[in-house]
Design a protein around this nucleic acid. Sequence first.
DNA 1: CCTCGGCAAATCGTATACAATGGGCGCTCT
DNA 2: AGAGCGCCCATTGTATACGATTTGCCGAGG
Lengths: 249, 249
Amino acid sequence: MNQRQRWPEGKEGTAPKAATRRGKDGDGAERHEVIYQSISDAIIEHRLKPGARLREDALADVFDISRTGIRKILQRLALEELVTLTPRRGASVTRPSADEAKDVFDARQMIECGLIPEITRRITREDIQTLRDMATQEREALRAGEQSTAIKLSAAFHGHLAHLSGNATLAAFVERLCSRSSLILAVYGNPGHLGCESHDHEDLVSYLEKGNGERAQAFMGRHLKAIEASLSIHSEEDEAPDLYTIFSR
Amino acid sequence: MNQRQRWPEGKEGTAPKAATRRGKDGDGAERHEVIYQSISDAIIEHRLKPGARLREDALADVFDISRTGIRKILQRLALEELVTLTPRRGASVTRPSADEAKDVFDARQMIECGLIPEITRRITREDIQTLRDMATQEREALRAGEQSTAIKLSAAFHGHLAHLSGNATLAAFVERLCSRSSLILAVYGNPGHLGCESHDHEDLVSYLEKGNGERAQAFMGRHLKAIEASLSIHSEEDEAPDLYTIFSR
DNA sequence: CCTCGGCAAATCGTATACAATGGGCGCTCT
DNA sequence: AGAGCGCCCATTGTATACGATTTGCCGAGG
């Protein structure tokens, strides 16, 4: 479609863009989605660390697209608060503040626990099997030392669980909270001890299978509290020191 | 939140609104914010009805800006689900489905009620005064027959209340839910009987003032249920009739 | 040696030009 | 006359060019 000799300036010949050379002419919208997922995954998996700069030109070059498309994607990520857009400085992976971290986990506590009753009511046998598979897969990844994968699978587990409530709006919100949690873990987490304990999710599924909603709810509460407690939250007020407020007369 | 960098020249400190992020302004970004607010308000106030088309050219012309800027704003509105972006047909004001309506009100029920205890704990005398003023203002507008204003003020009331919980993340989510609620009222509401009863908010403030969190919480629950019950939700399966499902063998 | 001021490079913000797609509408054939 | 078909226009999607601003460097002066 638009895949003709771009960049007459050269510099194209020597740089083999490793990045999933999208099949040309793939319909435009699809390509955007793929790129969005790529960046989003990279952030969630901590392959892009908080604070990392995301230059538009570089991304445009890597994904073989114009800056226009990249900006669109970057904006979307910014609205989901995975990246921070500073007016004339470009985009960077969001570095959550301590306050934000607390807010996010409080929100998860409220919503994910609040969703459990409805989930218990609606869950089917197939759902339980799917969840169990996801939990297993996650533990496998954890044991194999693939932290990136484990982090993503953990978020996926929580997201999938939320969707079982039947409330798409809240589920979407939970997904976003999980993404942000991943960022929080990257900043405040202790190495070698990432958020979810390996067996937690499987235990949770067991409670759900037994139809024991109250136990499941309490367990989810403890689970989230445990993750939050495992963080070492230091204020670290280095970035954007907000000078105008600090030195305001 | 560390998004406060104010330029010393700026003085537009109308704090209570603070709808979203966007701290940095400079010069050009401010204009975008204004335009965004204009469109957003127009939608929330039902001056733009669900289904209304929003042509990029027209908007660009009205606001004296290039289509680039309009697209950016439209995308933001789309991510907040106030407008729907259809691939090659442009933007239109979102027409919420019946399912979405239910989801939104369930979500509000969970979150706004869940927030009340913390709000009760944190609320100050000034906060109560502010809330009372807002409620009064809202009733005034309602009595004056200014529905548009009343709708916006109602959403602002719920949003402001949520902010008093101290959880900016959840508060932002509540704000978005309120915006969407406004859309839902536009589609499923009965004329002459818009969502919030005129005295409801003032009653709620009274409970909060007495520090009676449980009463306040129960009242909020009833309040939201009442709004939801006042809707006449007909599925209205006209658009996108999903022929494949209907005629599936 | 330290500091201040200007210059240059880098990078984002905006506008405009171009391409492509889908719908509306008139023409023609039966 | 009705229906089918194809062209034209309206509208969006994408790319690139240009302008603005910020940053970092380097040289000059105290």
